[in-house]
């Protein structure tokens, strides 16, 4: 049991070490990767907060409950001459307490969770609609108003490295498994609504840093929205999280965030190209690693 104890202790300390701020998912050393990312949206931060609250409540309960049990394990063992108190078989008062207290604890978790849930599922007043279509194995992104549309697939160099017995060491590949040829581009500080669906099997579009995960169902549209904090420019990475067949591991979700101005310009360019009949999906394939 001391081991089990160590188990949770280790976990506690580990999470303690990172409770302040989780490292970004692109860190190359893994030992410090122990917790959810705080992320770059209001929702992802609130989820992180809920997660940590629930975690600490569980740690607290564990300390108390495990503490009591460990006390018995140490002091109520026969080798220490403990004699069993066989009258101790029922006590209505404590039984009521340890039924009621958990209920209260649960309520204290359920209320904030419920509020956050309602907030997250409010997709009204979106400023930008993007249709996300999963397929075996990649994503198609379509900007609803402008009609700009392209396919986003696993980047070339990762794809070469990931083949069975490719002889290429994944460590030498930049963002192995988490890179695509055409990332989704979204403006910061804008409420973006994704209209997620699929053409074959069920996929799931997940971007941890945005706190967004929604299944892509063939024949149905799922709505989900996010607003990236102004100024949080960068590339954010996630993966498909619903088993979708052989290459389920190889359809990453990559999003580049740009300022609203840059976004407008970018969208115009793409629109123009598309008008000229250029296939955006074929454009600028990420070059092999080098």
């Amino acid at each position: 049991m001391h081991r089990a104890r160590l188990g949770i202790l280790g976990g506690t300390l580990a999470l303690l070490a990172t409770a302040a701020g989780a490292p970004v998912a692109s860190a190359q050393s893994g030992w410090s990767l122990l917790n959810l990312p705080v992320g770059v949206t209001d929702v992802s931060r609130k989820i992180y907060g809920l997660h940590m609250m629930a975690f600490w409540i569980c740690v607290g309960i564990a300390v108390v409950v495990f503490g009591v049990m460990i006390w018995s394990l140490i002091f109520h063992r026969r080798s220490r001459g403990a004699v069993a108190d066989v009258t101790l078989i029922h006590n209505t008062k404590v039984e009521v307490i340890w039924t009621a207290v958990p209920v209260l604890i649960l309520i204290s978790m359920a209320v904030p969770a419920a509020n956050l849930l309602v907030k997250i599922n409010d997709n009204s007043h979106a400023q930008l609609d993007i249709k996300v279509t999963g397929f075996q194995w990649g994503w198609q992104y379509t900007y609803m108003k402008s009609g700009v549309s392209f396919v986003s697939k696993l980047a070339y160099d990762t794809d070469a490295a990931r083949q069975l017995g490719s002889g290429i060491n994944p460590d030498t590949v930049k963002n192995y498994l988490l890179d695509v040829d055409h990332p989704l581009v979204v403006p910061t500080g804008t409420k973006v609504r994704l209209l997620i669906t699929s053409v074959d099997v069920i996929h799931s579009w997940w971007l941890p840093d945005f706190g967004v995960k929604r299944d892509a169902l063939p024949g149905f549209i799922n709505e989900v929205s996010f607003t990236v904090d102004p100024g949080k420019l960068g590339v954010y990475r996630g993966q498909c999280t619903e088993l979708c067949g052989r290459d389920h591991a190889y359809m990453p979700v990559v999003v580049r965030t740009v300022s609203p101005a840059d976004f407008a310009a970018w969208l115009k360019r793409q629109q123009a190209l598309q008008k000229q009949g250029v296939d955006l999906s074929a454009q600028t394939i990420a070059a092999p690693a080098g």
Partner: peptide, 14 residues
């Protein structure tokens, strides 16, 4: 928590 999906034969190096 760090973001590794289940049911995958391969994962990012971190």
């Amino acid at each position: 928590l760090a973001g590794m999906p289940r049911r995958t034969p391969d994962y990012a190096v971190q």
